[in-house]
Design a protein around this nucleic acid. Structure first.
Lengths: 176, 176, 176, 176
DNA sequence: GATGAATGAGCCTTCATTCAT
DNA sequence: GATGAATGAAGGCTCATTCAT
């Protein structure tokens, strides 16, 4: 039964990640539960509050980001520019921006703020390393802080609230 | 009483602009009405639907943008770089990103899509002119399309949903 | 100006009659005003309350009914059966049923009940006459009271709330 | 809790039947919920939309009607006239007219029209049988179609919108 | 542990009615 | 006299959260 529970918890965060990335942070939690294939009560049993769920998603995204950085560590010496470019691309494809509005709610919660700060610290530390290398290779401005870099990633990957990315083409030339 | 009504309509769009810019597009319309100092029914009398209100805001932002561009036209010959920089800054301070999610809803509405397209066309035309000059002065890449430029402005000025920009400082060095 | 006002009042009751007959008594008074080509405030100036408007409609319908009866009086001696049949048909085409729900609201109002009773009395009196003749001619049951006759007319002419008399054919053979 | 839920669903349709029969189809659903002793959200959980609730009521009325016809089947051979009279009386006491305005809304809904048609078909079939017998016994006109018979029942049992059946006695002699 | 059911609170929208011009 | 504007109250519906099985 423990395994079942863990599997459910995982399915729930996975579902939340998918729905957050596509529809933004305003999704009904019942939609997350449905997407995860569990009942709404199960979701609440595992995460207690909406904020805790989002926090779990944040942890998961952090782990993805750290793993991504780790994965690129080797390539760095071969071809710094290539390494940096693909790293940024891969980090962006995690779509950290999707979580921002949700995380603001967490930051508003006295009790959860510290958890969030810790998660963010992990990320900033990892960014620090990698930015050093990038700066050494002359690939980014000297004064780009980890926080600033993170903000940029988040800003650029915030999802539109969904409905019709099809109908409404805001982009002109895709490469412009 | 015609004057009163016009004043109210103006107060409502002004309130909507403020609240959209700070809290994003998910605000209750009752909050807009309250901020404007009118009853909710007055808001609906003037705008009929949430979409029409947002469309009015979009028109207002367009007018601001066009006026901003106009205002910078003179400076252009003196100091192109300065002109371009301040123009971009001023356009960004209109915070076009605040409206995006709201406008998506409009674009979803068969009946309002054309209005939206027209508004956007006005802006793109104005951007076209100004981008030509900027390209001529070597200030932007040759292949930056008006649509792409607009997308960039909007992406970068999307507001956080609010609660506590105080508590949670995502930015590191402000200039980084 | 007096003539204008009277014309407006008349236009309003006429509009109310039309809308009541087709959509039932739940119509917005603003729709009545619009149909009459006047502002909503004009409607209220003339009728004060929704109930008074309906009362005016009731008076108008009463007048139509009385006039109808009068009109048939002559024919009675020639051909009683024909007279009775066409009379009933003509009375039904006034659609008294359309007003019933509205009149119930009036009857609920202490102050207006008497007006309503008086109007109804006029009708019942007229029915009394005519029913006597019909009974004498053996065209209706002896025990049909004026009130009962009126109730029957009203019941049978109550309008459906409108939307789709087209889509939904409740009637089978029209003559069955 | 499955049993509880079913009991609630039943209580809700029962409440709806009562309120529809007495106040007509314009009742607030919150009143239905209250009468059923449940919260408004419970009503919506069970029925989703106002139309679905009314459809459930329609099904219930159909079942009552079919059961009523079945119940009278035996008596038919003994005393056809008595059987027919009491049958009609019992069918009328189901007050099918109460639902008409509500059903019109359903008929307007593309998705629900078929359900409604099916329910109605069940009733018409049952009427067909019984009308045959009545015609054989010379109790009704040969050309009375089931649809026409149903229409008559519905027309005659449409409830008044309520307020004060006490104050306002539209009926004269009850038997006239 | 998992689940569906229940619920109140909240936002959207409409309408009867009043007011100022 | 006539008008459009303003407004609160009410009903429709959804969602986060809790409870009982």
């Amino acid at each position: 039964m423990r395994a079942d529970a863990a599997a459910n918890a995982h399915a729930i965060t996975a579902a939340a990640k998918v729905l957050l990335a596509t529809h933004g942070a305003d999704i009904p939690l019942s939609a997350v539960a449905e997407q995860a294939g569990v009942g709404i009560a199960t979701l609440y049993r595992h995460f207690g509050t909406r904020e805790e769920l989002f926090l779990a998603v944040a942890r998961s995204l952090r782990d993805q980001a750290l793993a991504t950085i780790e994965r690129h560590r080797a390539r760095w010496d071969e071809d710094p520019e290539k390494a940096w470019t693909t790293l940024v691309h891969d980090l962006a494809s995690i779509r950290p921006g999707a979580l921002i509005p949700g995380l603001l709610d967490i930051a508003a919660d006295e009790a959860l703020r510290d958890d969030l700060t810790r998660i963010r610290g992990d990320i900033l530390n990892a960014f620090d390393d990698v930015l050093e290398k990038a700066k050494a290779a002359g690939l980014v401005q000297e004064d780009l802080s980890p926080a600033r870099f993170q903000l940029g990633l988040a800003t650029l990957t915030r999802p539109l609230p969904d409905p019709l990315c099809r109908t409404c083409r805001w982009t002109g030339s895709a490469t412009g």
